[in-house]
Write a protein that binds this DNA or RNA. Sequence first.
DNA 1: CATGAATGAGGCTTCATTCAT
DNA 2: GATGAATGAAGCCTCATTCAT
Lengths: 205, 205, 205, 205
Amino acid sequence: MTENDVLSSVKNQALIEKRRNQMIKGAITLFKEKGFHRTTTREIAKESGFSIGTLYEYIRTKEDVLFLVCDSIYEQVRKRLDAKINLEKPTIDNLLNVIRSYFELMDEMQEEVVIMYQEVKSLKKETKEYVLQKERDMVGMLEHVIVTCLPDQLSKKDAELIANNIFIQGQMWGYRRWMLQKHFTLEEYIEKQIYYFKQSLSISI
Amino acid sequence: MTENDVLSSVKNQALIEKRRNQMIKGAITLFKEKGFHRTTTREIAKESGFSIGTLYEYIRTKEDVLFLVCDSIYEQVRKRLDAKINLEKPTIDNLLNVIRSYFELMDEMQEEVVIMYQEVKSLKKETKEYVLQKERDMVGMLEHVIVTCLPDQLSKKDAELIANNIFIQGQMWGYRRWMLQKHFTLEEYIEKQIYYFKQSLSISI
Amino acid sequence: MTENDVLSSVKNQALIEKRRNQMIKGAITLFKEKGFHRTTTREIAKESGFSIGTLYEYIRTKEDVLFLVCDSIYEQVRKRLDAKINLEKPTIDNLLNVIRSYFELMDEMQEEVVIMYQEVKSLKKETKEYVLQKERDMVGMLEHVIVTCLPDQLSKKDAELIANNIFIQGQMWGYRRWMLQKHFTLEEYIEKQIYYFKQSLSISI
Amino acid sequence: MTENDVLSSVKNQALIEKRRNQMIKGAITLFKEKGFHRTTTREIAKESGFSIGTLYEYIRTKEDVLFLVCDSIYEQVRKRLDAKINLEKPTIDNLLNVIRSYFELMDEMQEEVVIMYQEVKSLKKETKEYVLQKERDMVGMLEHVIVTCLPDQLSKKDAELIANNIFIQGQMWGYRRWMLQKHFTLEEYIEKQIYYFKQSLSISI
DNA sequence: CATGAATGAGGCTTCATTCAT
DNA sequence: GATGAATGAAGCCTCATTCAT
């Protein structure tokens, strides 16, 4: 199960790509506003700029749209995070910068992250597993940076836990903005989280 | 907007309480399984042990059920957490015990927490605000314990951040169990989180 | 089929009378506002001052209420019209006074008349026939006055037609008030109708 | 609010026209039989020859059907009446012919008129106002013919009253057929009404 | 007699999906 | 490839009526 497994009756691959991107963009706009369940396929078609008939030329079920959306968001996050990671200089500063970048990324993609967070559960088992694997990969990326950049050896488990903590702290910024963003600016939030992160690993300034 | 604002055409208060509890119980069972949107009112009625007509004697819309469910879960968590908090001895050990209890609570109520986490968004603005206030209250409880039990003064903001971190680490245990519970037992998870919590606040053993 | 054929499980006749009067009064209030179909039996019970259970002690179906209402309105109109008719002095003036009285009555009972006009059709064949007979009787009363008070002999048919014309001119005052009552006062309406009535029968002033 | 304000999700105007005509025809058949409230949307769809889903492609609520039906009936009556009116020769004979035609029209459209008479009240305020305006227009047409064709000047009010009288005498023929059509043929009814009409205006033969 | 909780058939409407053009 | 009209299963909710207390 990958995004290429979403069957389309159209043959022209370039067109498929183009239409799906329109569709994903349209769907995200709508999902942000009203969630997956309250958005109709007709609305998605309209927002995407084509007819309901055309929509169904590129997907088979409404769930396919959700899958494409989730997949697309994950891919975007993953790619952008990946771009920030440079392990040639495995220093603590490098690690901290990755974490900062990750938080900033989560800020920029708040709404998308919220969609994923709330709607992934509506995917059916198989596709959900595929998407969650991407999440595991991303946590794995963080974990890898942590292990690589820290001088003291952390156990695999500790690294995993810490990676998860950072991961959800990033998501929390967007997901719980109603709670946090009234009292913190992004910079404050990042610096405080970084501070406690360093403390927790006894990293001296 | 409180749970008493969900209108019922039945007058007997004790009966309302009883039926609503049946309803909440039934609904939670179903929401665990298939989520709010995929559960029908008829299924809720059936699972609750009465007819669709009776269901609607105690609520007015399907969303009322969701509200009652969310409200009930929050109340339960809040009460049980409250019971664990004893500020007569504001020691660090006491604080750590509260945190441990909170994690254990989140473990016991995993499924309920997942429901809330995913479905609160389907409430309409007004009731959502009411429910989220309960979440703020709970974070506030943690924050209060932290401030009270720590010898060194933490700023309000730092306390708030830390309380939020703990709060979501608790939720994460249930919400991301597919990621965590393969590699950690509850005890491991708790002890590691407690360990890093102490580190981050420079609390010596 | 008479109003005594609406079965009641209550034995006490005086009580039946009392309750039915409450019920008719309540129902008329509601029917005026929203019509028969949009009024629920619960609303009728409430407006009548007793419970839904009690309502059903005195009727068997919702349609029974409509029947009692229609029957009651007809009876009221009939009685009040009857009271105005005095055939001891069968003069033209007497006839004109009856007609005036009838128009005034229709003005006073506008709303009730509208109910009947619109809802009788919802009665089932049998009871409708019974109610319509009352209408025939009333037209018959007018017809009788006409025949009796006019010096020149009118054929039966002509009398019937004229009685019907007057009858619906009276109803029209209430039923088409949105059209008439903007431009006419009741007095104007009556005097003009009387004027043309006299003209049509070549009655000199 | 006009019949074009009934929203349809179908774009092809010709098709909308066609389907709405089917729908109106089907609905009238059913409303004649059981009235608006006792007719279900599914029955309307079936009688119209398409599925319930298709029905709702052309309307938004059941009330829309009622509106279309009422509007269509009024339009038909108005057009047919209009076609009978020829004011090039504003003679009394011409006036009498218009009245005759109107009565004949009411005879042909008895059932439709009954529907309107009984169901317009179920429209909501706004659409009801629109439909009643059409009724005012029709009465206005009669009024205009009366004023134009009569040699002696009638006051505006007198013309209005007389137009209303004729208007409801026409409706009465259908609406009170249970009373009238047992004793009168249409021709008798018309001739007698015309006779009294002439009398009332002192029109000599 | 009075009450009101319980029932469930049935009504209106939505919307994912198909398919002829 | 694109369109959009057609479909009907299925969802939410109402309300007349019953019956145990």
